[in-house]
């Protein structure tokens, strides 16, 4: 598996707190091509701690590409240059000996930096709290097979529901728009029969909170889809647009 180590020059964003001004710090490292980029950072941190220096603050959890915690911008790409791959699954063999790598936090006004590479993505939770659910109480559900759902519909809903909520779409978008994320959440429910009763209420409430949070508007560059680690399609944005426009023009509620 292992070949020779790679010698790399890293420029990593350091920022003490949300209030301080950050800058890049340079590191020269020699790393195994089998290591993931996060394992490379682990190793740097271990060295820093040994010298009594503050390690680089970055987040990760499952390291299997599903929890959505990690999400560094590597050479301008959220989750790095490898398509459909989360940061934790980005292995150093994808880089060449002598490469220079810039590692930055995801940038967007609603995602302020907390420390170094850690950002605050709680805006995503707020959007989902606004309506990304089906209203019913535990215990009141009918037998699961009472609700028939075609395989095609279930698959399309799952395609949207696979979103890991990492924020790469916002990070990739030049407008810091969250529409791929919100579109995926809206779509998951609006495709399913269970989601129909609240379909138009949901989309209006979620979009309102999204706008309030300060995300930009979508200008259909589709950078989000290109950088999404799960390959979520912009079709979901179209579905959200359709539902939203329909809701505004057809629904009987005057204000939502």
């Amino acid at each position: 598996m292992s070949n020779e180590n790679l010698s790399l020059t890293l420029h990593i964003w350091r920022q003490e707190s949300s209030k301080s001004v950050g800058s890049f710090e340079e590191f020269k490292v020699s790393v195994s091509p089998d290591a993931s980029i996060l394992e490379m950072l682990d190793e740097i941190n271990n060295g820093l701690e040994k010298e009594g220096k503050i390690p680089i603050a970055f987040e990760s959890d499952c390291r299997e590409g599903i929890c959505g915690t990690c999400g560094l911008v590597v050479n301008g790409h959220p989750h790095g240059p490898l398509p459909k791959t989360a940061t934790c699954q980005l292995h150093m063999r994808n880089f060449k000996n002598g490469d220079t790598i810039y590692i930055e936090p995801m940038r967007a006004k609603p995602f302020p930096v907390i420390k170094d590479l850690i950002i605050d993505r709680s805006a995503f939770d707020k959007i989902q709290q606004a309506g990304a659910f089906i209203s019913f109480n535990t215990g009141s559900a009918p037998d699961a097979n009472v609700i028939l759902i075609s395989k095609e519909t279930a698959d399309a809903s799952l395609d949207a529901a696979e979103c890991i909520g990492c924020g790469a779409c916002v990070a990739a978008c030049k407008n810091a728009s969250a529409m791929l994320f919100v579109g995926a959440k809206v779509s998951q429910f609006s495709l399913l029969p269970q989601g129909q009763p609240e379909r138009y209420k949901r989309v209006q409430e979620m979009v309102a909170v999204m706008d309030e949070a300060g995300f930009g508007s979508c200008t259909n560059t589709y950078a989000c889809e290109a950088e999404c680690p799960k390959g979520i399609s912009v079709t979901n944005i179209a579905r959200m647009n359709r539902d939203f426009i329909k809701a505004k023009f057809i629904s009987k509620e005057v204000e939502v």
Binding site: I134, A144, L192
Partner: peptide, 19 residues
């Protein structure tokens, strides 16, 4: 299973629409 389906969990389906 009933609970999760009602929540909108998109479980795998057969062509006939059953789980």
């Amino acid at each position: 299973i009933d609970q999760c389906v009602a929540q909108g969990v998109p479980f795998a389906r057969e062509y006939g629409g059953m789980l």
